[in-house]
């Protein structure tokens, strides 16, 4: 079962502090490969905190563990991830003549990865 959702990469405190320790260090890699999802979305996809999901689009894919967010904080159909190597994998290289690849509100397919 997969669904189309919107991925929003952004900054977070943890991403910022772990970045200072080193971008090749465990902590940063973990922070940047955890996604936050709406609780109803997770229920529908039969996901629990810590389960693995695969996010993919025509550019690439990555897997991440997921974390529940209340509906009032994160609307349905939206996924948040701290910027990093994972989110870059789904970024298109075409910048539409601007120099800036679309890096927020990226359409992705989300599916549960069997444990």
């Amino acid at each position: 079962m997969s669904e189309t959702m919107l991925l929003i990469p952004g900054r977070s405190n943890k991403q910022g502090t772990s970045l200072n320790k080193g971008k090749l260090k465990e902590e940063y890699l973990e922070v940047t490969s955890t996604v936050e999802m709406n609780e109803d979305d997770m229920q529908r996809l039969q996901l629990e905190d810590g389960d693995r999901v695969r996010l993919s689009n025509s550019i690439g894919e990555f897997t991440a563990s997921c974390k529940k967010k209340k509906s009032k904080d994160l609307p349905e159909g939206m996924i948040f991830i701290a910027y990093g190597p994972s989110s870059s994998r789904l970024m298109e290289s075409d910048t539409g003549g601007s120099g800036m690849p679309i890096s927020k509100n990226i359409e992705v397919e989300v599916e549960k990865v069997a444990a």
Partner: peptide
């Protein structure tokens, strides 16, 4: 680490001179 994959791929194929405080 931060660029789209196509850009990273090309970066890996050309000589790069880098300045960094950490690896």
């Amino acid at each position: 680490a931060n660029f789209p994959q196509a850009a990273i791929n090309h970066l890996g194929s050309i000589p790069v001179v880098s300045f960094d405080t950490k690896e």
